[in-house]
């Protein structure tokens, strides 16, 4: 029964994605909408990404240093660990879990409100493809902006990690940099960007689907938003594992 429901919902989700690409009426208008969403998602989420990354970077260094009290290892290993954890997991995945909360709930509640107040019906009545006009720009913006946010997060986390190492006297800036560079694997950057792009797609399309098909009243809009965040986080975690298995 549960699996039946899952598959019928999955089918509906694919149907919505397909509908996004059926003859959009006027490309210029859609493009404007994509830009608007990119600003909303990108600039709108910058503050939370900055705050989160600054503290996470600091914590990473302090806690890594705490685990490596042995004098046998060079201190620069701390720099290496902070850098690699950040690039592989903290910047793309953990940042995306935070972003899913913000972006996912806002997409689901916006579309849910438009659905129950008949704004989506109004679009359809005008002969506008509501999926192409409302859903597609959000998915495009999410898929483009989330990896950029993840890159910002990565830089900030590593930089803060380095600063905090210096301030607390754990290791010097040079030692940190040396460690970062010595054990740097270029593929981790590609891997991180692939992850963030996938998660960006998930955290915009899943909430868009749940919001778009909201039925009922304002209570259900709230429920859709909550479900959207929960579902996005679960799918992000699942794909985090799948991508790790496939790509490493």
């Amino acid at each position: 029964m549960i699996s039946y429901r899952f598959f019928s919902q999955f089918g509906q989700y694919l149907f919505l994605l397909k509908k996004c690409f059926v003859n959009p009426d006027k490309p210029s208008i859609y493009w404007r909408e994509v830009m608007r969403q990119m600003v909303e998602i990108g600039v709108g989420s910058l503050t939370i990404v900055v705050i989160f990354s600054v503290f996470l970077g600091a914590v990473l260094t302090v806690q890594t240093a705490y685990q490596f009290t042995t004098p046998l290892l060079s201190k620069s290993i701390i720099g290496s660990i902070v850098t690699n954890t950040s690039i592989i997991e903290m910047a793309p995945s953990v940042t995306c879990l935070i972003l899913a909360g913000k972006i996912g709930s806002s997409i689901a509640s916006e579309l849910g409100t438009m659905r129950i107040s008949e704004q989506i019906d109004a679009l359809e009545m005008m002969g506008v493809n509501s999926a192409a006009y409302l859903v597609l720009p959000k998915i495009l913006a999410g898929t483009i902006m989330v990896p950029l946010l993840a890159i910002v997060a990565g830089f900030l986390q590593i930089y803060m990690g380095m600063l905090v190492g210096k301030w607390s006297g754990v290791l010097t800036q040079e030692e940190f940099m040396q460690g970062s560079i010595q054990y740097f694997i270029p593929f981790t950057v590609t891997f991180g960007i692939i992850k963030a792009t996938t998660f960006g797609f998930i955290m915009s399309s899943v909430p868009a689907y749940l919001g778009y098909y909201t039925t009922g009243g304002s209570l259900e809009v709230g429920k859709s938003a909550t479900r959207a965040v929960a579902a996005s986080c679960i799918f992000i975690l699942i794909f985090d594992y799948i991508l790790a298995e496939i790509l490493i």
């Binding site: 409100t113 008949e118 019906d121």
Partner: peptide, 12 residues
């Protein structure tokens, strides 16, 4: 077709 909805349905 022009349509006026019960709740107006203006774009917020």
């Amino acid at each position: 077709i022009g349509m006026l909805f019960q709740g107006s349905a203006l774009f917020d």
